[in-house]
Simulated scan of single mutants.
Amino acid sequence: MNTGQSIGVFDSGYGGLTVFKSIAKQLPQYNYIYLGDNARSPYGDHSFETVYQYTLECVEWLFEQGCPLVILACNTASAKALRTIQQKVLPVKYPNHRVLGVIRPTAEVVGQYTRDKTVGVMGTRGTVNSLSYLMEINKFFPEVKVLQQACPMWVPLIENNEHLNPGADYFVQKYLDELLEQDADIDCILLACTHYPLLIPKLKAILPVGIELLGQGDIVANSLELYLKNHPEIVAKIDREGIRKFFTSGDRQAFDQHASIFFGEAVQSDQMHLKL
């Protein structure tokens, strides 16, 4: 039965498309709506309250479009807004809707990738300052030591398509060095921002031998597949036509141009109008 419902995927901008790319590849049968809040990105340096308000507005918009399940494919939104939405908003206003993030599924498996039980986390200031990864990884792998490094210049470089140019080399090396200087035993680095996979070519070129570089796309896709297997009541609501729709709160032409780089194929978006 066609219900007109889709899985919603939300990010503050383009980065969530790296996660959506993995989800769509692994679970191509479902309908999806992707929303990038480009008009107000990046979220990384905003306060908890601001990120929460922006994220809630976008989640509610996706609910209105017919998404009973929304994935926050954004580490900052997952760190600063997810728990409040899950605990205070959904039970009262949307008891039949679900919102999931990217931090918990990553924390559930990251300990499997470190031999020396020492993990480095690279993210935005917002994600790092929230301490979310320290707390979540400790729940599943209390024996793992977690070091963090904020990388405030990486998202602007990526969003301006400067990340593969020589001018980006300084900041890629700078933040990597600052992380590795914290502990010589780091043997796994988690890219805790969905923009950062676009820097993997540069990072691999300078990464010391023996250090695992971990992105989130496949991890989140695996976790979503398992979630859907365990929640057939959600699956029953979602159409299976393989339709993918893209929306942005910013400029459509700019979004389409940049989104194709993150998603790996041509993207045509529609406008999402913010309630200002």
Rank of each mutant, 00 (worst) to 15 (best):
N2L: 12
G4D: 12
I7C: 09
F10D: 01
G16K: 04
L17N: 06
T18C: 09
S22D: 14
A24S: 14
K25N: 12
L27K: 07
A39Y: 06
P42H: 07
S47G: 09
V51F: 06
W61M: 08
L62H: 06
E64K: 15
E64M: 14
G66Y: 01
L69K: 03
I71T: 04
I71C: 01
A73W: 02
K80E: 07
R83V: 12
K88N: 15
L90N: 08
P91A: 11
V92M: 08
N96P: 04
H97R: 13
L100E: 06
R104T: 13
T106F: 01
V121D: 00
M122I: 15
T124Y: 03
G126S: 08
N129I: 00
S132M: 11
E136N: 07
N138K: 12
F140E: 08
E143S: 15
V144S: 04
L147R: 11
M153G: 05
M153V: 11
V155F: 04
L157R: 05
Q173S: 13
Q173G: 06
Y175P: 00
L176N: 01
D187W: 04
C188R: 03
I189N: 00
C193A: 09
Y196P: 01
L198E: 09
K204Y: 03
K204N: 12
K204V: 08
I206Q: 11
L213G: 09
G215W: 00
D218P: 03
S223V: 04
K229W: 06
K229E: 15
N230M: 14
I234R: 02
V235Q: 10
V235D: 08
G242T: 07
K245N: 14
Q253T: 15
S260K: 13
I261R: 13
F262Q: 01
G264V: 09
G264Y: 10
G264A: 07
V267W: 05
V267L: 11
Q271N: 13
